[in-house]
Structure formats: structure tokens, C-alpha cells
Design a protein around this nucleic acid. Structure first.
Lengths: 225, 225
DNA sequence: ATTATTTTGTGATATGCATCACATTGTATA
DNA sequence: TATACAATGTGATGCATATCACAAAATAAT
């Protein structure tokens, strides 16, 4: 647990907007922590008075569904986490767990809110991010419920490739159980679909290593369900 | 199309927070319109530079899914609509359609943003609402995908009863097709489940009139899927 | 290294729900 | 009031995918 994060902007854009005053204030009032894969960063149901800024790494946002854990989405640094908690009743409404090595800043709500009030550009940034999240949520939900399994798996793979790793080759950041909870299926179906994609020549599987060999096809699968 | 909305607070809470100055500014810069059931208030894909404040009535938020229109949720006045649009590229990312008679204020983004900057309490309100929406979205999505049809229909009915109409007796605000698009099923299944609930003595159906005769059961159905 | 434990692959079977098809009722229009 | 059109009720059938039941790998623990 260090407290030496003078050079830890919340994100490059936001930092450049902070007045010297508020930036100092911020730097003096948060901690930087490292987590390793699998560590819990935010725990649903726990009391908390911190906003979390994910500096580096990957994390999953997940919550208890009626029958099993639901992974809402994979998030990549830089991003804020736990805003709903801190503005609400200070009880975490979802969990966040590290999916890779991760660096995180915990910022006290009070401080965060002060800066939000002091700095229009910053608060505008935040409102913007929240709006984007809402939209993304709408579309994600519509897609997941309307598409068939193949379509949803294709979407997940495309997101990994295009949004998370920026590469056609990557190692799956989630286990099959997790993938199932992300894509709303059973673990068995994940396995089957993945080998199916492999046989179809769309991807090439070597353990958890994936290479998308035919992105066009994958995009087609995404559209046809 | 009137412009005489001096007495149109965006909502009672927000209005009380506005300084006289910003409130005047606001009143002079928005319109009040009435819509009737079925009228489109916001059209996905259209250019717009207004934030919409729903003063009275009910509306549905919906968007084009990959295979059919998806109703995201039913919203009740007072609430803001179209925030993501105005903060983004000014293209509506979802549609909003009146489900009852509705009164609406269109507020120019510029004005809205000015007030957002001037008034901390107000912007705090907005951030709070956006956070709530995000959470609601997460839970809604987890529920919809994990529960079976009976559970989802039960949820919809309970929401109408508890959140929208505040009564055990109400007339369904949506057609069966719409209900199907809200609850992620086919129209036929909506019909079947509804009559099933009736036969089970959980509700009593007379056309579009519904009375929830056994709320306990309905809550149980909601939990058991 | 060896054993224990978790993760993954794959068949067989069961089931919830979509889809198709059409009758029926309700509601707008001429 | 008659006619067209939209919304609803209900059966029969098919299909996508969950579930069950193991085997096989891979990973972790001893």
C-alpha cells in the first residue's frame, strides 16, 4: 500500500484538466494498489467510500444474478469503477475482479466530489462516460437477448480482439465458466461453439490461445446469430 | 407548441436547486409540448440538440435490436431523456415513444450544460440519476437473461404495479407485441403466460385490465423463473 | 514426481420456447 | 352498420440449448 502517486493521473485526459490545486489535493488523498489476477477489487455488498480508478490492466464487472454470477463486461484501463456505489448508499452494487495484473487508485468520495464540483471539464468527462455506459448497456442487452449463442460468442471474441487486445491473436482472459456467464450460456456450450468455430476455420485454438483467422466470417456469424 | 413554461421545473427537486438566474435562463430557452399515446418523442438516428424532460406521463425507451425492436424500459415522469445523445454526437441513440398522454420540455443542450456547470447540486442530481440508470441496467440485464419467461413476465407486472401505477389494478400500458419486446419473448408466449397466470389465480384479466389478486405468488414466480 | 483439483471436451437426453397456422375478438374506417 | 385491419387466443411442431454424465487434460498442491 503506497501513497506516493503524485504522477498518477486518473487518466491522461482528466488529469490535464485538473487545476494544480485540485490535482495536488487529489494526489494527497488516494492510494495506489496492485492486484494480481483473480483478486477482488470491489466486492458487491461491502461498504465503501472510495471511487476506484483502474490505472492499468483488465478487470471484470460482475454481480449476483438470480441463479448465478453474471459478468456484465470486461473493462480495460483507464477507467473509473464504483461510481454508482459512491453516489448512492455507499454499498457496492457490483463486484470488480482483476483479470490481469492490475494497478488501481482508491480515491475518497469526498475528494472526488470536491473535484467534480470544482472542475467543469472533469465533471463533464464523467457525465459523458456515464452516458456512454448507459448506451453501451442498452445495446449490449438488446444484442445478448436477441442473438443466438454463436452470435454472442462471436461478439465476445470480436470485443476481445478489437476493443481489449487490439490484435487478432490473444489468450482468452476468461475461463469457459466465466465466458459462459458473460455470454449467457452453459460452460459446455462455450466449449462446443469454440471448437465449432475452430472447425469452421474462423479461429484457431491452442489451449487458451486464440487466433482469429477469418474475421470477416466472425463478423458474419455475429450478425446472423 | 407553447413557450410559456415559466412554471415548468425539470423536476421538483432539481428546480429547487436552481438559482433564480439559471432558472430564468432555463425557462426562456425551452419549449413545452404535448404528445398523445403512440407519438414519437425521440427518434433513433435523428439529429437533435435537445435534452428532453418528461414532465408528465409514461414513455417507453426502445431501440433497434439485431432482429427486432427492443424495448429497454418503461419510464415515468419526471425524468430526463436523451442525455447520451446530447453529450455525444447529437444523434439519438435510442427512441422514446409516448405510452400515455405526455407533456415534455425540450431544453437546448447549450443551456442545459451551462446550468450543469453553474449548479453543483443540479449536476450532482444528474450524475446520481445516470449512476442509478447504470445499476438498474446491470440488474435488469442479469435478470432478463437468467430468468425464464414466467419470471420475466412476473417482473414486468410487478414493476407496473409497484413502480409505475402504484396499484394492484391497472390497464396494461403495452400491447402484447410490445410486452414481448420488453420481456424478450414472442407475442404468443405473452398471451399464453398471461392466461396461465389468470388460471393460476395470480392475476385477473379482463381485456387489458389487470388485477393482481395474489401478489405473494407473483413474487414467488418472479424468483423461481 | 505424484496426487489432488480444477478446467475442458463431447455424447445423449430433456425442455422451454419460437415458429407456424389459423380462429377469434376487438377496434378503426368507410 | 358494414367492412377492413389490428390485436389476441390456442394448438401442433421443431429447434436451440440446458442439463446430465463422464472422460480427458491441464494446473495446482503435496
Amino acid at each position: 500500500m503506497q501513497n506516493d502517486c503524485k504522477n498518477c493521473p486518473f487518466n491522461s485526459k482528466a488529469a490535464s484538466m485538473l487545476s494544480d490545486c485540485s490535482f495536488d489535493q487529489l494526489s494527497e488523498n488516494h492510494l495506489v494498489l496492485k492486484f494480481k489476477k483473480g483478486d477482488s477489487i470491489i466486492k458487491q455488498g461491502m461498504y465503501s467510500t472510495n471511487v476506484v480508478f483502474l490505472r492499468t490492466g483488465l478487470a471484470k464487472i460482475h454481480l449476483a444474478g438470480p441463479y448465478h454470477e453474471q459478468i456484465v463486461k470486461l473493462v480495460k484501463a483507464p477507467t473509473y469503477l464504483g461510481l454508482p456505489t459512491t453516489f448512492g448508499d455507499k454499498i457496492n452494487q457490483y463486484s470488480v475482479t482483476a483479470v490481469s495484473e492490475v494497478e488501481v487508485c482508491f480515491i475518497d468520495v469526498e475528494v472526488f466530489q470536491t473535484i467534480l464540483n470544482e472542475n467543469h471539464a472533469f465533471s463533464h468527462e464523467i457525465v459523458l462516460e456515464l452516458c456512454r455506459n448507459e448506451l453501451e448497456s442498452f445495446h449490449r442487452c438488446a444484442n445478448r437477448t436477441q442473438k443466438l449463442l454463436r452470435g454472442n460468442m462471436a461478439d465476445a471474441l470480436l470485443e476481445f480482439s478489437d476493443k481489449i487486445f487490439m490484435s487478432d491473436t490473444f489468450t482468452l482472459p476468461l475461463s469457459q465458466v466465466e465466458l459462459a456467464n458473460l455470454v449467457d450460456t452453459s460452460r459446455e456450450s462455450v466449449s462446443r461453439i469454440l471448437t465449432e468455430f475452430d472447425k469452421d476455420g474462423i479461429i484457431q485454438l491452442k489451449g487458451k490461445e486464440i487466433q482469429i483467422t477469418n474475421k470477416k466470417s466472425l463478423q458474419l456469424v455475429s450478425q446472423n446469430g
